[in-house]
């Protein structure tokens, strides 16, 4: 079973992603901020990460920078799911950038493509 880490500060959106992904046969784990996310990503070693950009404390781009400095984790695909505009430039190496509210089928197909 493929593992997906969900990083988002909004509990309702985390719940949504967990339900959506588990219903579609993925294992999930969540983090509500960058610090927890970095800790969990090392233990959990997900196959893919969904990342919000604007969160209290440290922002999503910082999470990505830290991730890409870790040789073991730097190839983990990241999908940005954010409400920010100008999002396309925030993390250029993300495999996809979706705007909230996102299309769930689009998300599922992107995840499928990137976890083969």
């Amino acid at each position: 079973m493929k593992k997906i880490l969900i990083v988002d500060d909004d509990p309702n959106i985390r719940d949504y992603l967990v339900a959506l992904l588990e219903d579609n046969g993925y294992d999930t784990c969540t983090a509500s901020n960058v610090k927890d996310g970095l800790k969990i990503v090392k233990e959990y070693k997900p196959d893919l990460i969904t990342l919000d950009l604007e969160m209290p404390g440290e922002w999503g781009p910082r999470f990505y920078r830290q991730l890409s400095q870790d040789n073991e984790l730097k190839n983990t695909p990241v999908i940005v799911i954010s409400g920010l505009s100008g999002k396309d430039y925030a993390i250029s190496k993300a495999v996809a950038t979706l705007t909230k509210p996102f299309d769930k089928d689009e998300l599922l197909s992107i995840i499928k493509e990137n976890t083969l």
Binding site: D10, N12, A19, L20, E54, G83, S85, P101
Partner: peptide, 17 residues
């Protein structure tokens, strides 16, 4: 707009669930 987008996403989540 950020708040609104979050709410709409959560609303989507509610509808999905």
């Amino acid at each position: 707009s950020h708040g609104v987008k979050g709410m709409l996403t959560a609303l989507d989540g509610g509808i999905y669930q």
